[in-house]
Amino acid sequence: MPSLQRVQKPTTRKGKKILLAKEPKVFEDVKKKLFLTGRKASEVLRNCSKDLYKLSKPHAVILSRKNDILPFENIVPVENLCRNNDASLFFFSTTNKKRPNSLTIGRLFDGRLLDMVEFCINDYKSFDQFTASIPAETKPCLVFSGELWEQSQELAKVKSLLVDVFRGEVIDAVRLQGLEHVIMFTATNDNILMRSYQIQLKKSSTKLPRVELEDLGPHIDMVLKRTKFASEDLMKRACRTPQEAKSKPKKNVSKDALGTTHGRIHMGKQKVGTIQTRKMKGLKKTAAEKRVARKSKKAN
């Protein structure tokens, strides 16, 4: 017999709000990131996760405690931690003899693992080694270079994950002067190189600005190791757009050259004959008249 014991109402308004915020939405918020450490993490990894955390603030949580977790063996503890923090992206850093400096990046769908990839970091340069800086919460431009991003199916999936991780907020308009950050991922035969630059817009002879870049950091040279991708079915389910989010074409509304909006309205036929006008006592039928009318109706 299924039990109904744990059907509990939130007792406080605040609790209710928190639960409501965790429910599925038509237009979702920014995916929250969770930074975790495994049994042991090297300095490189610690710096790396700190820097990536700085990049993704305020939509990120960093947990400093060590966890005895191996995500590729058992993902459940990671899922639980993500659920507790309402996060759907995770960065798991651990180092050991067999897999030195391994950074696992993954994402969840509906509280369950969707896909994750493991990188081994070979070379790392942190923010501190560069002078340039950008304001917080800057939405980065993302550039992927190298033919491998398209040719290799595995890398195409990794690209989708990296875009999801680094794209930040979903926006419908952007202030062009505020584009200050670009992250480039270059896929060579053996490495994936992540570079992050500050954009400087310089004057040019045309209307378009001349782009100059300055090193911002972090620089990560990494090798793709183990992967675990979602089944096609699950990915399809995860990529579904709700009906409410799909925009419908606007019918019967047009704009002319002067910018005036024109709308076409369809009106039903108006029954002028039977329409109720103002009631007046003088126009009322007397009882006798009504009787006559009824009788004539009956006779018909």
Binding site: S88, F109, P242
Partner: peptide
């Protein structure tokens, strides 16, 4: 680019 949602459609 189609990216997966965080949670299923409401």
């Amino acid at each position: 680019l189609r990216l997966p949602r965080e949670k299923p459609c409401p």
